[in-house]
């Protein structure tokens, strides 16, 4: 029987005696709904995690190194040590996410066994498979995946991603790529309006998108799952910019803990995400934050070191 790739797929939920179904797509995508309007922060220690929670983060991403350090140090970047992940899970009450390598389904199994709340199949780590992403449907734990455009976003959703984020260019403190990717996704969806089904099938072929998911995007006028911005967000204004471009929330990686005053900056980014359409609030919280992270110009990065190019 062909695999259903509809976003309403319920096939993988486990039914129990009391009528409960666990791990259905509805509860996997539902958690992302709860994160909306919020900020998810990269943390590398339990202390960072508590600081992020105190600042109002709606979730944290547990990592060994923030993307800026991964970029600097090079080498193969892998899933974090389970001990570190467990210590961060124990430190906070908000959801904890962790990254696995693209295509590395065993790292994902390990993260699921640890009881992590969300897995980021991430281009920030070194890919383990240069053709295939993880089949995310069989997992009870939900996945978030990066994208650069609508084709990539819909392929990830077809594989079972319950949440999408822009890739941006992680660890640069430069928001330009996240803007490019968010605009590409919304332009791709706008283009679908008014197409008849034959044209939609042709468009699906052009952008490498699964027809069913693309049809869902056309019907809803947006991605059928929650869509965050990530990669290069370093200031409250960056976060509000992404929100005004229509994303549902933001990830901030290196931008907080690579800055001079992380707590103050974290609180300011949370406020700017909530009040993204209130420039007076953004002005107020942006004042006197200290030095932001240094940041990198994208053309200064050798092509083979661009993280966004990873993933297929």
């Amino acid at each position: 029987m062909p695999r259903r790739i509809s976003i309403v797929a319920e096939g993988n939920g486990a039914r129990r005696g009391n009528g409960e179904v666990k791990g259905s797509f509805k509860v996997k995508a539902g958690l992302a709904q709860m994160l909306k309007g919020g900020v998810i922060m990269d943390v590398v220690t339990p202390e960072h995690a508590r600081l992020a929670q105190d600042a109002g983060a709606c979730a944290v991403m547990a990592l060994e190194r923030v993307p800026a350090d991964i970029r600097k140090e090079g080498g193969v970047a892998r899933m974090s040590d389970p001990e570190l992940i467990k210590s961060i899970m124990a430190a906070v009450t908000i959801p904890v996410m962790a990254k696995c390598r693209i295509g590395h389904f065993v790292e994902a199994q390990v993260l699921e066994a640890l009881g992590i709340d969300y897995i980021d199949e991430s281009e920030v780590l070194t890919p383990a498979d240069e053709e295939n992403h993880i089949d995310k449907h069989p997992f009870k734990v939900p996945f978030v995946c990066g994208c650069r455009d609508l084709g990539e976003a819909t392929r990830r959703i077809a594989e079972g991603a319950a949440m999408i984020r822009t890739k941006g260019e992680a660890g640069t403190g430069n928001v330009v790529e996240a803007v490019r990717h968010a605009r590409a996704v919304s332009a791709g969806i706008r283009k679908l309006q008014g197409m008849n089904h034959a044209e939609l099938v042709h468009e699906a072929k052009q952008i490498g998108a699964p027809v069913e998911v693309l049809a869902e995007c056309q019907k809803l006028g947006r991605l059928p799952v929650v869509n965050f911005a990530a990669g290069g967000i370093a200031t409250p204004a960056d976060a509000a910019l992404m929100m005004q471009l229509g994303v549902d929330g933001v990830f901030v990686g290196s931008g907080i803990f690579k800055s001079e005053d992380p707590l103050k900056r974290a609180r300011a980014i949370v406020a700017a995400t909530t009040y993204f359409d209130k420039p007076d609030v953004i002005a107020e919280v942006s004042a006197g934050l200290g030095e932001p992270m240094r940041g990198l110009e994208i053309p200064a990065i050798p092509k083979e070191e661009l993280l966004a190019a990873r993933g297929w």
Partner: peptide, 26 residues
């Protein structure tokens, strides 16, 4: 945690008809 999130049918007082689809997330 999230892996324990679930759906279950609920009987709610004062609601006529069939059970209500309860979606429980963390």
């Amino acid at each position: 945690r999230q892996v324990d999130s679930f759906e279950a049918p609920l009987q709610i007082d004062g609601l006529d008809g069939k059970t209500f689809p309860g979606v429980f997330i963390r």
